[in-house]
Design a protein around this nucleic acid. Structure first.
Lengths: 211, 211
DNA sequence: TAGATTGTTAATCGATTAACAATC
DNA sequence: TAGATTGTTAATCGATTAACAATC
């Protein structure tokens, strides 16, 4: 039901809408929101909001808007956030460490969301065994075994550029399905695996153009 | 000279090309690269590479490709990286700290690039005065004064969502021109100021769709 | 009912891809 | 010269916006 044929640009906006709705319900905003209000708070035009939401199946009521709780639950369902999503981080340097803490802090006590950090990997013997909020740092060599054991299919790569491709290859071998890559390289992988790249340097350079 | 009318999608790819070229020159790759090779290493089609590069002015040689050093310098020029870009970070929690170290580590010893971290701000009295590689953490209240004094026009926001808009407002007041926002909210700002958003949660949720 | 806002279609806009003459 | 690859135009593809009938 409404899970096929949704273009990726649209999927990318759904978590933004969800984020807005989550904040609204905390403020117990009233039980309905219009495409105008939702667009305003999301940085998107009302027409775009309606178009996007119509693609995942229409729940709005003419003259009123969208019921917040219903829409929020539906967005979660579409994004698979109605079940637990297990995540592993490879590379526990400054950035990996910060990401780990961020995920733990944001999601571990959250009853509604289910993004769960289940494993950390590094190659530096000095950090192996260290715990971050109860999650131990394992050696990268155990990745292949740990993946099926712990059942994670999503990985954050936060290793130096030089080793990122070899780490990606391990992910492919282990059947990982989605990768969030912070290493400043374009990673090669078979089609079935979804990669999203975030590169601080590239964002900064992009912005530098507009100075 | 090729600085006007370049769509933002194209500008966003230029730093990717630049990154590839930088890596190539380190490996002293030969002095020429084709749109096929550059595309391959950038995750972009050859046609796209040629189209993009033609927009910034054409330097390729038919039958050969693009001279690496020339193209690299031209990309730097377009992206304003031929002069020093001063950056400040607001919010020195886990993430802000990691970003600070990343920028320092990557650019401070770099002779070619000129992204320079010149200031750090926070509101927590316990961290004010602390130094990160020689850069002191100042109180956010001094932001308005420090901006013109230190001359930065680009800011990284890494504060909690609740205070991000007020921090953005201070940036606007201080005449900041470009903002890289890590806080999970859509920030409102006048048109003249360029904002790029990066939100780890949104990236993770986006990927979760494909699990 | 009157007012408001959805869902959807059609129109516009913009970006990507294909193709090939020009030329190194 | 022969082979290769650019720069550019035209064709395709996809996304955004506008508009409005349907309807709560």
């Amino acid at each position: 039901m409404g899970k096929q044929n949704i273009p990726d640009v649209v999927i990318r906006r759904l978590p933004i809408y969800l984020r807005v709705l989550e904040n609204l319900s905390e403020e117990s905003y009233g039980n309905v929101i219009s495409s105008f209000e939702l667009g305003e708070k999301s940085g998107v035009t009302p027409a775009q909001v309606r178009k996007d939401l119509s693609l995942i199946g229409a729940f709005g009521k003419q003259g009123l808007g969208y019921e917040i709780a219903t829409l929020r639950d539906e967005l979660k369902r579409i994004l698979n956030l109605d079940r637990e999503i297990k995540v592993a981080i490879i590379g526990v340097g400054n950035l990996g460490h910060a990401i780990a803490k961020y995920i733990i802090q944001r999601y571990d006590n959250e009853k509604d969301y289910h993004l769960k950090l289940v494993a950390l990997f590094d190659s530096d013997p000095r950090v192996i065994g260290e715990l971050i909020n109860g999650v131990p740092i394992d050696h990268i060599d155990s990745f292949q075994d740990k993946a099926p054991e712990l059942g994670f299919r999503m990985v954050v790569i936060a290793v130096p550029a030089e080793v990122a491709q070899s780490v990606m290859d391990k992910c492919v071998m282990a059947g990982i399905e989605a990768v969030l890559n912070f290493a400043p390289v374009h990673l090669k992988a078979p089609k079935g695996i979804r990669i999203h790249n975030t590169d601080l340097s590239i964002d900064l350079m992009h912005l530098a153009y507009y100075l």
